[in-house]
């Protein structure tokens, strides 16, 4: 039997859907027993949410004042102490999981599979390399715990309907004081979250200014979409950093992705490969984005976007 420990991600109020996706990945391993681990100052609310995910057998809480913020240096030794007895340890490939999971792996003395995208067996997996230009199949040694981050764009969120048991653990692990949380600045909006939105409207360098990005926000409001951006648009200050889509930004899998004035660099495409439908609008008919677009329109975005907003709104 595979005993799988999933590092749950949350903000104390809500369990991040990345956790539900990790559960789907874990369920693909035959005969898996799935435990979601939650660290926080008070994880009661999110533990109830985790217990309700179909396929989860157990939820383990480690509540402790020092766990109020997810500092890898503090979380990792606690997770490593708890990991004995598990065959697999999965974190999400979000900034939380990518920061934390390798630190745990190193403490356990084992290598890590990053961005696990497909399960071919309990110890056989696929992952992308070279910005998704190649896919490798890896085999791990069953004698060691398998540590991985799960590429969340590759898995659907597991539905609710479960009723797992919840328990609390106290660990005798001393935590370092060398790393201190100061604060977070979020561009939080009431718009759909980029990583989980069914629709995403995205803009590139061609937008030309933060002001012009409003065109995209208007369209997004009409269709209930999240707004994304290319690196060029973020670097130029037209969009904020958490909006970046791509190899080094967010990897997303919406139902539909609109790319306006984005050329389609490989580093951008790797972030949208799993979108069900890609719509591209670019004034250059030779733009590489058209090679991957399901629906393409050669045109000036400054004409197309307002017209599209109007026609959809009508």
């Amino acid at each position: 039997m595979s005993k799988i420990l999933i590092l749950g991600e949350h903000d104390a109020k809500t369990l991040n859907p990345a956790t539900h996706k990790c559960v789907t990945c874990a369920k693909a391993i035959p005969g898996s027993h799935i435990t979601v681990l939650l660290l926080g100052a008070d994880t009661a609310a999110v533990a109830a949410q985790a217990a309700a995910i179909q396929g989860v057998d157990e939820v383990v809480r480690i509540d402790r004042a020092e766990n109020a913020h997810p500092l890898a240096a503090s979380f990792a030794p606690q997770i490593a102490a708890l990991a004995t007895g598990y065959t697999h340890l999965f974190g999400p490939s979000t900034s939380f999981g990518k920061d934390l999971t390798p630190r745990v792996a190193a403490l356990l003395g084992v290598p890590q599979v990053s961005d696990l995208m497909a399960v071919d067996g309990a110890y056989r997996f696929r992952r992308p390399i070279y910005a998704g230009n190649a896919i490798v199949t890896l085999e791990a040694d069953p004698a060691r715990i398998l540590v991985a981050t799960v590429r969340v764009a590759s898995f659907e969120a597991a539905p609710s309907g479960g009723a797992a048991t919840i328990s609390s653990r106290t660990l005798d692990v001393s935590l370092p004081s060398h790393t201190r949380y100061v604060g977070v600045h979020t561009g939080a909006t009431d718009r759909p979250d980029l990583q989980t939105a069914a629709r995403v409207v995205s803009g590139g360098r061609a937008l030309g200014s933060a002001e012009n990005f409003k065109l995209l926000f208007d369209l997004a409001s009409k269709i209930g979409a999240a707004v994304g951006a290319s690196r060029a648009a973020v670097d130029a200050g037209y969009a904020s950093n958490e909006m970046q889509v791509g190899q080094t930004g967010k990897i997303i899998a919406p139902q539909v992705y609109f790319a306006f004035g984005i050329s389609g660099a490989i580093q951008h495409l790797t972030g949208i490969k799993d979108a069900r439908t890609i719509v591209a609008v670019n004034k250059d008919p030779e733009a590489p984005i058209f090679e991957v677009a399901d629906v393409g329109l050669v045109g000036d975005l400054f004409q197309v976007v307002p017209e599209l907003s109007r026609l959809i709104g009508a």
């Binding site: 561009g187 950093n241 958490e242």
Partner: peptide
């Protein structure tokens, strides 16, 4: 640079 925005820590 984290998914939520910008986080500051002191080390």
């Amino acid at each position: 640079e984290v998914d939520a925005g910008l986080e500051t820590i002191e080390v």
